[in-house]
């Protein structure tokens, strides 16, 4: 995921200071980790270099001087292009889980234990997300939903995998 493009998206609503941008980013997207200042400024300078943003003006008062950034037409174009291209499906997301389950089943261990443990962990996260979601604003809710759906998908996949493998072992087993 590109931070630069995300910043471009945030700037589309109107010009902002770098600090504002970081705050907005953290609010909306930073549920896992917040953005470091350095990263914001390095990204912005890269965008500036590529002509996707422009500096509107510099405000100087107490403290450090603050630049006001705004999006350029090229920036809007780049943003639109990004939004309209699909993400590459991540097929190998659960490599580790998959490996665990297969190993458990094939080694004759109870795959349900893996499943249950994983389910517990997933459900704990999901419950937490659900609780947080109920207090969040709509855009943040969307982000939570994204995670929830993905976690659910993981769980379902996991359950299916266990059932399938059990069937398989039953067939294989003498």
């Amino acid at each position: 995921m590109s931070i630069g493009l995300t910043l471009l998206g945030l700037l589309e609503g109107g010009s902002r200071h770098g600090y504002d941008l970081k705050r907005a980013y953290d609010d909306r997207f930073g549920q896992n980790r917040s953005l470091a200042y350095g990263q914001v400024y390095s990204t912005l300078s890269r965008l500036l270099r590529d002509g996707l943003v422009a500096v509107d003006g510099v405000e100087s008062g107490e403290g450090p001087e603050r630049k006001r950034y705004s999006i350029t037409p090229e920036g809007v174009e780049a943003l639109e292009r990004w939004l309209s291209t699909s993400e590459k499906p991540v097929a190998d997301l659960h490599n580790t889980l998959f490996t665990k389950v297969v190993l458990a089943v094939l080694s004759g261990r109870d795959a349900h234990q893996v499943l249950d443990a994983q389910r517990r962990a997933h459900m704990d996260v999901m419950r937490d997300l659900t609780r947080r979601k109920s207090k969040a604003d709509p855009t943040a809710q969307l982000v939570h939903d994204f995670s929830l759906f993905h976690l659910e998908a993981d769980l379902r996949w996991l359950e299916l995998a266990v059932s399938r493998l059990e069937q398989l072992t039953k067939e294989i087993a003498p």
């Binding site: 349900h112 459900m123 999901m126 419950r127 659900t130 659910e152």
Partner: peptide
């Protein structure tokens, strides 16, 4: 049977073949 819906609950009880697991 939807984990997302179950996530609204405070607790989850899984039932398998007629007996509760947890």
């Amino acid at each position: 049977h939807e984990p997302r819906v179950a996530a609204y609950a405070d607790r989850e009880v899984v039932i398998r073949d007629g007996s509760t697991q947890r």
